[in-house]
């Protein structure tokens, strides 16, 4: 009896020690391996699956009264792109700016800011949630993305919309060129009523820190899904061949593609 108890104690202690070591020491290495990556990905897949199950394509993100607008809206990420093509457009108040719409569409086109402003618009006061944890409320006015997609006419193989931006981000090494910011959304979010190409913020033309001349709003996801400084819109069937292949600049750095949580 005594002997048995001792063995059991040793077994229990050993088990606890092993479990603890695995849990604390192994987590980092586990997460870095391919299988680990895939396993961790399962949580995001579950989140996307359940959220899409609970929401309809029309379910709106909460909108707020004008009194709720944040006095100062923090501008995160790039706040003043230094690229020459962007600088040239900005110097002329984006009068020569043309948003390119192409890819898997029947009629690719380019559209100027004044033409965009002539389209039916949507104004919404929404909460912007950064992946870091902070929130700010702002008023956005812009052209619903679905109007542009309908004008272009999607081909049957269309699955995602790719947004390319003027601004570049830090690269991993000096040898590789600085990657441009980019993002992708699927057609559910692309056709959502609150998904707009915003040209006004708080009733005035969108400032450079917030993404002039155009930024995307995807209100049911986190801030990094809403690229600033939009250069072109491309309808695609897969983002596997675009840059890092994960569907966005931050996704290529390890962030989840579906940023609903």
């Amino acid at each position: 009896m005594k002997r048995k108890n001792l063995d059991r104690r040793r077994f229990l202690l050993g088990g606890l020690g092993l479990g603890g070591a695995l849990a604390l020491g192994g987590c980092g290495r586990l997460a870095a391996s391919r299988t680990g990556q895939n396993a961790l990905q399962a949580g995001d897949d579950a989140t996307q699956f359940v959220q899409r199950l609970l929401m309809t394509p029309q379910t709106l993100a909460p909108e707020f009264p004008a009194s709720a607008i944040s006095a100062s809206f923090y501008a995160n990420g790039t706040t003043d792109p230094g690229e020459a093509d962007y600088k040239a457009l900005a110097a002329n108040q984006f009068a020569d700016y043309r948003l390119k719409v192409g890819g898997l569409v029947t009629t690719p086109f380019e559209i100027s800011l004044s033409e965009l402003r002539a389209l039916p618009s949507r104004t919404q006061i929404t909460r912007h949630d950064c992946v870091e944890g902070w929130s700010a409320i702002g008023q956005w006015t812009g052209a619903p993305l679905h109007l542009l997609l309908e004008r272009a006419g999607l081909k049957p193989e269309a699955r995602y919309v790719l947004f390319r931006c003027f601004d570049t981000m830090d690269s991993d090494s000096l040898d590789t060129p600085r990657p441009h910011y980019y993002e992708t959304v699927d057609l559910v979010d692309a056709y959502h009523p609150q998904t707009i190409l915003a040209y006004d913020m708080g009733g005035a033309a969108l400032g450079v820190p917030h993404g002039a001349p155009l930024r995307l709003r995807v209100e049911r996801q986190l801030g990094y899904k809403m690229p600033k400084y939009l250069k072109s819109i491309e309808v695609i069937d897969s983002f596997a061949a675009v840059d890092g292949g994960k569907g966005g600049y931050w996704e290529d750095q390890g962030y989840d593609w579906y940023a609903g949580i």
């Binding site: 997460a31 961790l40 992946v131 931050w250 390890g254 962030y255 989840d256």
Partner: peptide, 20 residues
């Protein structure tokens, strides 16, 4: 913290997988 180094993306993946 998990991971030990500053890594929000991986921290979020751990958090949401184990939240489920």
């Amino acid at each position: 913290t998990l991971p030990a180094e500053q890594d929000l993306a991986t921290g979020r993946r751990w958090h949401f997988l184990f939240a489920w």
